[in-house]
Computed example of a mutant assay.
Amino acid sequence: QEQVKQSPQPLTVQEGEVSILNCSYEKSAFDYFPWYRQYPGKGPALLIAIRSVVNEMKDGSLTVFLNKSAKQLSLHITASQPGDSATYFCAASAQCSPDTCSLYPDLQPRLQTHLLCR
């Protein structure tokens, strides 16, 4: 059962452009939405996360927008650089505390975006 969907797959952008990765989810109970980045040969690393109490979270060149009514979120990477080329995962969990948050257990390879910045 697919509860988190991500698009586009893959995404190619030019250096300096804004990269936008979209994610939708099914359960209204989800309240914690982390994004992970994975470089080839490495494990996924937490990039940025947003909680349902806010609708925008910014960290440097990264901004996450959350639309709770539409059950969608998006990750914007401003001024994309070749070093941003990686695989990005969105995830969702419910009733999550900072100590217990982890990748959504049903996250599968289909729920990822390959970003290539040239």
Rank of each mutant, 00 (worst) to 15 (best):
A70L: 01
A70R: 10
Q72A: 06
Y36S: 11
K68V: 14
G60V: 10
G83C: 00
D84G: 03
L66C: 09
K58T: 14
D84Y: 11
S19G: 15
G16P: 14
S69M: 11
F33K: 02
G43P: 00
G16W: 03
V64A: 05
E56S: 11
P82Y: 00
V18E: 13
W35I: 11
H76N: 15
E56F: 06
I20D: 08
P34V: 05
V54P: 02
M57I: 03
A70T: 02
M57W: 09
T78W: 09
D84N: 13
A49F: 01
Y36T: 07
K42W: 02
E26C: 04
S24Q: 09
V54N: 09
S24A: 10
K42Y: 02
I77T: 13
A86I: 02
E17W: 01
S85K: 04
F30E: 09
A29K: 10
P82W: 04
N22G: 09
Q9F: 10
S61R: 09
S85Q: 01
N55L: 04
Y25F: 14
V53Q: 11
S74N: 06
T78N: 14
S52T: 06
W35S: 04
V64F: 05
N67T: 06
Y25L: 08
L21R: 05
L66Q: 08
L11I: 02
V18G: 04
H76Q: 02
S7K: 03
L75M: 05
P8Q: 03
K42G: 01
E15I: 07
D31N: 15
Q81C: 08
V13R: 11
E26L: 11
A45E: 09
A70V: 00
P82H: 07
P40Q: 07
L73F: 07
E15Q: 15
S19N: 12
A70C: 03
P8K: 05
Q38L: 01
P10R: 00
P34A: 07
A79Q: 15
C23K: 14
